[in-house]
Structure formats: C-alpha cells, structure tokens
C-alpha cells in the first residue's frame, strides 16, 4: 500500500517537474516565479522516495500513518506557494496603482499644453 502511494507521488512529482520546465521553455512562466515550484517538485520527489525520511517526519509531528505525512507536506507547500503569490500580487497592485497615477498626471499635462 505504501509502495503504491510512494510510486504515485514520485511519478506525479516528476511530471510536475517536467511540466514546469516546459512552461518556462514556452515563456509562459518566468524563471523568477518558477524557482519555488521547482523546489516543491524536487522536495516531493525526495519525500516520496525516502520511506525513512517520511517516517521520521511523521513521527516528529505525531502522525501514525506515514503516507498521511505526504499529504501534510503537500498541504504545507501549497500554503507557502499561496502566501508567496499574495506578496507578489500585493507588489503588482501597488505598482499598478503608481502606473495609473503617473499616466493620469502625464495625460493631464499633455491636455493642458494643447
């Protein structure tokens, strides 16, 4: 049972890794935002392959069934990614506002000149 879970999650992380690389290659994902994703894929590969690591991890956080720890690891990564995007969006919206303000002031200057 454990072997199947491990194999599935390993295969999935490899596919994820390839998919991320392909997205960057097609310029649909910037390198800057791909690093965290690549890190997640590699970490998932390691955790799903090493049963010992998973058992240690499960024991440390008090989970009796080690494969369930895989789920926890995955969830934590998702939370980290979401938080990362929240900061990215905050920066983008700040910059977007600044751009709109500068543009409005430029337009006003042009209008007043003509």
């Amino acid at each position: 049972m454990f072997l199947r879970t491990s194999l599935f999650s390993f295969a999935f992380s490899i596919l994820l890794f390839i998919f991320i690389i392909e997205l960057i290659r097609r310029r649909k994902l910037q390198e800057r935002y791909s690093l965290l994703w690549l890190g997640v894929a590699v970490a998932m590969m390691i955790v799903s392959l090493s049963r010992r690591l998973l058992e240690i991890l499960a024991k440390a956080v008090g989970i009796y069934y080690p494969p369930a720890a895989l789920l926890l690891v995955g969830l934590l990564f998702v939370i980290a990614l979401l938080l990362h995007y929240a900061t990215v969006i905050s920066k983008l919206s700040d910059e977007n506002k600044t751009l709109a303000q500068k543009l409005a002031i430029l337009e006003n200057k042009l209008d007043e000149r003509s």
């Binding site: 690389i21 960057i24 290659r25 390198e31 800057r32 791909s34 690093l35 690549l38």
Partner: peptide, 17 residues
C-alpha cells in the same frame, strides 16, 4: 544565491529552447 540558481536555470532553459 538566488542569482546563481536563477541564471544557471535561465541559461539551461535557453539551451533547451
């Protein structure tokens, strides 16, 4: 560190392209 990782990744992708 970010610089090293990012540039190596970017160059690898450029070659892949």
């Amino acid at each position: 560190i970010y610089y090293m990782v990012k540039v190596v990744l970017a160059i690898t992708i450029t070659v892949l392209r």
